[in-house]
């Protein structure tokens, strides 16, 4: 009986000490890791909104379209960055898009961060959206990649819709 008590005690104490040690190290390193993550996120969002400094994330309220995964407000008032996720035609991976909309409701930049279809959407098409506003005039689907380009267009519209919903919610709250 004694043999077991000793074994259990020793094992327990070692676990306790190690756990405390890990808690201490985590305390030191967790903030650094958080910051690095945030910095990477900010950097990737900055590519669609030039000159951006820092971003604040909005809580997504009801009424925001499903494709919108996150909405960020750029802190110096330049505008907003919105990340979207929409279904691709053949693959299971979704198409991920980040779009930057200026405070003047005009698209400043778009980036596709994940695209797994074999036929690519050419840059001439994807970048043709830049400079347009929420009406997305004169833009059609792209021949040969109809499904994806339609999904793309719908996603960008959703970005505007989601942004409007969130901004309205913010206005009501204030």
């Amino acid at each position: 009986m004694n043999k077991y008590v000793k074994s259990v005690t020793v094992l327990f104490s070692i676990c306790l000490v190690i756990a405390l040690l890990l808690a201490a190290v985590n305390f030191i390193t967790a903030p650094i890791i958080e910051e690095a993550k945030k910095k990477a996120e900010t950097e990737s969002l900055s590519t669609v909104l030039e000159g951006a400094e820092d971003f604040e994330k909005y809580d997504l309220t009801d009424g925001v379209p499903e494709t919108v995964t996150a909405i960020y407000k750029e802190t110096s008032g330049l505008g907003y960055a919105i990340t979207l996720s929409t279904k691709s035609q053949y693959s299971e991976d979704n198409m991920l898009i980040t779009v930057g909309i200026g405070a003047d409701r005009i698209i400043k930049g778009i980036k596709i961060t994940n695209y797994t279809e074999s036929k690519a959407l050419p840059e001439s098409y994807t970048q043709s959206y830049v400079g347009k506003d929420s009406n997305l005039e004169n833009i059609d689907t792209y021949a040969g990649v109809t499904y994806s380009s339609r999904a793309y267009k719908d996603a960008i519209s959703d970005a505007f819709a989601g942004l409007d919903t969130v901004l309205e919610g913010e206005k009501e709250a204030n």
Binding site: L21, L22, V25, I28, T29, A30, I32, I33, A36
Partner: peptide, 11 residues
């Protein structure tokens, strides 16, 4: 190993 992991992820 966890300590090394956390330290590496941070630094």
């Amino acid at each position: 190993v966890t300590i090394v992991q956390m330290a590496m992820q941070a630094y």
